[in-house]
Amino acid sequence: GGHPVTTQMVETVQNLAPNLHPEQIRYSLENTGSVEETVERYLRGDEFSFPP
């Protein structure tokens, strides 16, 4: 991942996926670069990993 992630982006995802840890959200956003894509992954039931 190398996309810039803002606190705003993390908070937006958190509102839609409250049971995800912020670190999981941030890591996913760094890989996708997209709030929409991260939320899609969540709704699909994809696994969210923590940063290594």
Rank of each mutant, 00 (worst) to 15 (best):
Q14P: 01
E11R: 13
D46G: 06
P52H: 08
Q14A: 12
R44G: 06
M9W: 07
T32A: 06
P52G: 08
L20N: 00
G33I: 02
H3T: 10
S49Y: 12
G45R: 00
P18Q: 08
H3M: 10
V39M: 14
S34R: 03
Q24M: 05
R41Q: 10
V39C: 07
P18K: 09
E23K: 08
E36M: 13
L43V: 09
T12E: 14
F48T: 01
Q14V: 07
S28I: 05
F50E: 03
D46N: 06
F48W: 01
Y42P: 01
G33Y: 06
F50N: 03
S34V: 02
L16M: 12
I25W: 00
N31F: 14
L43N: 09
E23N: 09
Q24A: 04
R41D: 04
L29N: 02
M9N: 04
F48L: 07
P4D: 12
E47T: 11
N15W: 12
E47V: 12
D46L: 11
E47P: 11
T32S: 08
E11Q: 13
S28T: 03
T32K: 00
F48G: 01
R41H: 09
S34G: 04
Y42N: 01
P18E: 05
G45D: 04
M9C: 09
L16H: 09
R44N: 10
V39H: 05
P18T: 07
E30T: 08
G33V: 03
N19M: 11
F50T: 03
G1R: 14
V35N: 01
G2T: 14
D46Q: 08
E47N: 11
E11V: 11
S28F: 06
N15S: 14
R26F: 08
P22I: 13
S49L: 15
G33P: 02
P18R: 08
P18S: 07
L43M: 12
M9E: 07
I25M: 00
V5S: 03
Q14R: 13
H21V: 07
V5R: 01
G2S: 12
R41P: 01
L43R: 10
T6C: 08
R44A: 11
P4C: 15
V5E: 03
I25K: 02
D46W: 10
V10E: 04
R44W: 04
E23A: 14
P4H: 15
V10T: 05
E30P: 00
E36K: 12
D46F: 10
V10M: 14
G2N: 13
T38V: 07
S49W: 10
P52F: 07
P52R: 06
I25T: 01
V13F: 00
E40A: 14
H3S: 10
E30M: 13
H3P: 09
R44Y: 04
Q14F: 07
Q24E: 05
Q14N: 06
Y42F: 10
S49C: 14
P18Y: 04
P4I: 15
T7S: 13
E36T: 12
G2E: 10
N19S: 12
H3K: 11
Y42W: 11
P4Q: 14
Y27I: 10
V10D: 00
E30C: 10
T7I: 15
G1S: 13
E40C: 15
A17G: 02
V39A: 05
V39D: 01
Q14D: 00
L29H: 02
T12F: 15
N19W: 08
V35M: 07
Y27S: 08
I25Y: 00
Y27H: 14
S49Q: 14
S28L: 05
S28H: 07
N31L: 15
N15M: 15
L29I: 06
R41E: 03
P52T: 08
V10A: 04
G1C: 14
E11I: 14
L29V: 03
P52S: 09
R44S: 08
T12Q: 15
S28W: 08
P51N: 04
V35S: 02
Y42M: 04
R41T: 04
P51R: 05
E40W: 09
A17V: 09
Y27M: 11
P18L: 07
N31C: 14
P18D: 04
T12P: 01
V35I: 13
T38D: 01
E40Q: 14
P4K: 15
T12H: 14
T32V: 03
H3W: 13
E40V: 11
H21D: 10
V39S: 05
V5M: 03
F48E: 01
E36F: 11
G45P: 00
P18I: 09
F50K: 03
S49F: 13
I25S: 00
I25G: 00
E30Y: 09
S34W: 01
I25Q: 01
F50V: 04
E11T: 11
F48K: 01
P52A: 09
E37G: 07
V39P: 01
E30V: 08
S34F: 01
N31T: 15
H21K: 10
R44M: 08
V10G: 01
S49G: 11
E40D: 11
T7H: 14
E40N: 14
T38A: 02
Q8T: 12
P18C: 10
H3D: 09
V13D: 00
H3R: 12
N19C: 15
L43Y: 10
P52Q: 08
S34M: 02
G1D: 10
E11W: 08
E23I: 09
P51L: 04
G2Q: 13
N15H: 14
Y42V: 05
T12A: 15
Y27P: 05
L16R: 11
V5G: 02
A17P: 00
L20Y: 02
L16Q: 09
T32Q: 02
V39W: 09
L29G: 03
H21I: 03
